[in-house]
């Protein structure tokens, strides 16, 4: 167990190995390890981001769906309203038309009655003249007595 030159030689060998390790072994391996760590971290971050954007997208689609549903509801309600409006309008129109038709018919009837009355009056007047002529047994000058006849006809 004596100390000799081996000590110094061994120290030199040791220093060479330290430098070798520090230069050729440690840096590339640590670089590989830290690169891999970064890649894993990036991958995890990307996955996180993906799941977040998925959640965002589903929330968005949910929102859109809700909006669409609301819109559909609105449209439906509007259509219903319009339909009832249309029906009401049609009813009103139909009623006025009916009223108008009824009024026109009434007018027609009135006119018919008036005309019939006029005809009747004329016929009564003629009958009266005819009757008078028979009574007088002579020909009445229709022209001479037209004013009398007209007066008679107006009184019937």
């Amino acid at each position: 167990m004596d100390i000799n030159l081996t000590l110094i030689a061994q120290s030199i060998v040791f220093l060479v190995f330290i430098l070798f390790t520090a230069k050729f072994v440690w840096p590339p391996l640590m670089k590989a390890v830290s690169d891999r760590q970064n890649r894993i971290a990036d991958g995890l971050a990307a996955a996180e981001k993906g799941s977040k954007s998925l959640a965002d997208a589903s929330a968005k689609s949910e929102e859109t769906l809700r909006a669409a549903r609301a819109q559909a509801q609105d449209i439906l309600a509007g259509a219903n309203k319009q339909a009832t409006q249309l029906v009401d309008q049609a009813k009103v129109q139909a009623k006025t038309e009916g009223d108008r038709i009824v009024a026109a018919a009434h007018d027609e009837v009135k006119r018919e009655v008036a005309r019939a009355r006029e005809d009747l009056r004329k016929q009564v007047g003629e009958l009266a003249v005819l009757g008078a002529a028979k009574i007088l047994k002579r020909e009445v000058n229709a022209q001479a007595h037209a004013d009398v006849l007209a007066d008679l006809a107006a009184r019937v």
Partner: peptide
């Protein structure tokens, strides 16, 4: 000089650190 100590330790160092450096050279991330 203790030849056996020096030879054995140097040989082992060359093998071990040489192997590690060889692996480190081809290291992939």
């Amino acid at each position: 000089l203790n030849v056996d100590t020096l030879v054995t330790s140097t040989l082992l160092g060359v093998l071990v650190f040489g192997f590690m450096a060889w692996v480190a050279r081809g290291a992939t991330s």
